[in-house]
Structure formats: C-alpha cells, structure tokens
Design a protein around this nucleic acid. Sequence first.
DNA 1: AAGCAGTTTAAACAAGCGTTTTAAATAACG
DNA 2: CGTTATTTAAAACGCTTGTTTAAACTGCTT
Lengths: 211, 211
Amino acid sequence: MSTKNKILDSAESLFADKGFNGTSLREITSQAEVNLAAVNYHFGSKKELIKAVMSRYMNELSPRLETALTQVCNTESPSLIDVFSAFIEPLLSLNDFKTKGTSNFLQLLGRGYTDSQGFLRWFLTTQYPGVIDNFVLAVQKAYPELNAEEMFWRLHFTMGTVVFTMSSSDALIDIAKSDFDRNLQISDVIRNVIPYVAAGVGAPMPSSATA
Amino acid sequence: MSTKNKILDSAESLFADKGFNGTSLREITSQAEVNLAAVNYHFGSKKELIKAVMSRYMNELSPRLETALTQVCNTESPSLIDVFSAFIEPLLSLNDFKTKGTSNFLQLLGRGYTDSQGFLRWFLTTQYPGVIDNFVLAVQKAYPELNAEEMFWRLHFTMGTVVFTMSSSDALIDIAKSDFDRNLQISDVIRNVIPYVAAGVGAPMPSSATA
DNA sequence: AAGCAGTTTAAACAAGCGTTTTAAATAACG
DNA sequence: CGTTATTTAAAACGCTTGTTTAAACTGCTT
C-alpha cells in the first residue's frame, strides 16, 4: 500500500468520524503510520487532501448515479419512491469499492455540508453538475405539478434529512440496538429514510387543487 | 448592558454564524468589547458559556412549547400538521425576546447537533426532557398506528430536516431572493418546512395495511 | 477616609495547529 | 557503479487556541 493511499484511507475514516476541522494532520499521519510532512508533500495542503478524499468517492459514484437516474426518467410514470430508490444500488456499491465505503461516504457528505459552510455546495455543483441535473429531472417527471420554488425548498429539505441522518447514522444504529434490540446497517438506514423523503417531497402543494 | 450579557449576545450571534468550534473566545470578547479573561471569570470555561447561551433560549422556549403541545394533545383528533404547527408561535415568540432570536436559536440548535457530537442530545434529554416527552405524545395521538421503532426513525429524520434547514436558512433565504425574487424571512422557512415534515412523519407504514 | 469584595485589565502560559525546512535514506536509470 | 530524483524523517517555524496569573481599578460599607 502506497503512502498516498494510506493517508487517504486514514483521512477518510477520521474525517467521517470527527469532521474535517476536528481532525488534525498529526492524527491522520499517526494512524496511517507515515510521516507528518507526507501530507503536504503528496497533497500540498489539508484542503487538497479533503478534496482528494471526496473525489475518490464521487468519481466512483457519479456515473452510476447518473445512469440510474436516467433509467428512472426513461420509465413510463415513475413514482418518487422510484426516484429515491435509484440511489440505493449506487450508494451500496461503494461497499464493494471499499470497506465501510457507503457509510463513510455519506458521513463525509454530511461533514462537507456542515463543517465549512458552502464547501460541499461548491464541490458538487462545480465538479459534478450532472448528478444534480439528472436528479431534478427525475423528480420533475415523478411530480410534474411541483413548481420550481416548491421543488427548491423540498430538495433542500431532503438534502438536510439525508445529510443529517447519515452524519449521525452511527449514533442512530447504536440507539436502535439498545432500544429495540435491532442490529441494523447503513443499508437499513437508507431504506428507512426513503419513504420519509418521498412523502415529504410528494406532499400536496399548499395552495392548489389536489394532484 | 452588563459585561456578562455583552458576552452572551456576541457569543450567540458568532456561534450561530460560525459554529461553536469555529468561534474563538478572542472573537467573542473582541466583538463584545470586553476583556478576554472576562469569559473565564464570568462563565468558567467556553463549554459553560455555550450551555449558558443555549439555556437562555431554552428557558424561554420550553414552557411555551410544552403548553402548546399539551393543548394539541387535548384536542379531539389532531393532525400531524397541527402538531408541527404548535412549534410556530413559541419559536416566533423568541423574536420578541431578542432581536433575530428565532433564527439565532434555530441555527444554534443545528450547531449543537453537528459541531460536537452528542452534546445537544445530552443537553435536551437531561435538561429539558418535558419538551421531547410532550412532542412524542402529540405525534402518537395524531398518528397512533406509528409503532415505537418507526416513530424513532421519523422523529430523527425530522430533527435532521429542521436542524439542517435552519442552520443554513440564511443561505436558503438568499437563494430564494436571487432565484425567485422572493423576500422571505425565517418565519416563511418555518411555514414551508411544516408540510414537508408532516408528510414525512405521516408516510404510510412500510409493511402494514393502510391506516 | 480606609478597607474590602467584585471586576476589569494586560500579559503570559502551555498546548495544538498547518506548514516548511533541513538532512538522510531509498529508488531509478544511464 | 555512480548520479540523479524521489521519498522519508525529525525538528522547528509562526500562529492560534483556551486558560491562568497577578496587578490595577471600581464602588460600596464601616
């Protein structure tokens, strides 16, 4: 295993656990068993390391996601459940790509949104615009009555639900075990959240006739 | 204005903007125009200052919230919209209590959940258990078919939606202005999110007969 | 007026941070 | 084999953090 990959792996798990700001380069290089200066040598700076960690996942995920969302758009009359379910297989495929891949990535997503404000929005919209565009198209096809403004709000609410849930998924899984004696995994959390966000996005328009 | 209150006010707005970890005591005391050591003199530590900022709001909010939720429980057959709408008046009343009170508090809530993991959960469950208990009771009355496990998940999803939305409400309001030419306030965001979370919590049970 | 508790002040502390610098070890190649 | 380029290593840099210290100042009571 190369020094570069050892750093990426350690950074990924530590970032997911403790956030970007909450993780020091010394923690990362210590866990990776490499020298402290190796981070700046290989990546230039901490910020570039963060981007490298995120890109490794997004490059794996975004083509699968775009394909799945395009397929939904090409079906006859997709439901919102169909749209959100399109995320399942691409997200779970990250577990083949890397151990704990799915949960690590989803937690990183949450960290990127809350740690340094605006970073994730910039990262996704500038680096991977195709994913968002396809997603909006799929939602429009599933719920054409939703106007642009309502769509804007509800997609942000959904982003919040997913990002927040995933950034605290470890705690939620622990509570589910102690309170309900259920041994759940990240895939169960994903399957649980889909009916919720689908119902939220699919809520009737506030001041219009029923769809 | 006392030194103590100057610190509380500056800490509140800076914490809401940049998070607890992202705000230094020197920023706070500089904006408050008091000496650096005043924080440790009056509050003991930064952690105690955070608690003091949160308590100032919760002591104002929790009795109003408990009253409103109890009233909902005492109505004949409340809807989930009724339950969540019970939050509106108590939350907006924080604007009478303090300038920008509502949005500051809701952003602080989000920071407390994401900044240092588990702090807010501990704070709310140990310091203000009555609010959560009344909330759960109200949801149970509005949607009795929801079993404990589903309730657990959906309330956490809702927490995520609200907390995340509010912690980025400033950005959302800005986007709404530039994209749709709408001048919105925090109260509009609250009213927008209610149908979403009500529909999410009210989603049909996954593997049971329709309610 | 003297004394005293309550506050405020400026300065310093120890620790941690990201980054840079130096030199030594390793690998690649003509 | 010898030279060059790459990679590692340890130490130090400059800076910021939360916290503490000790002295000065405040306003009140005796």
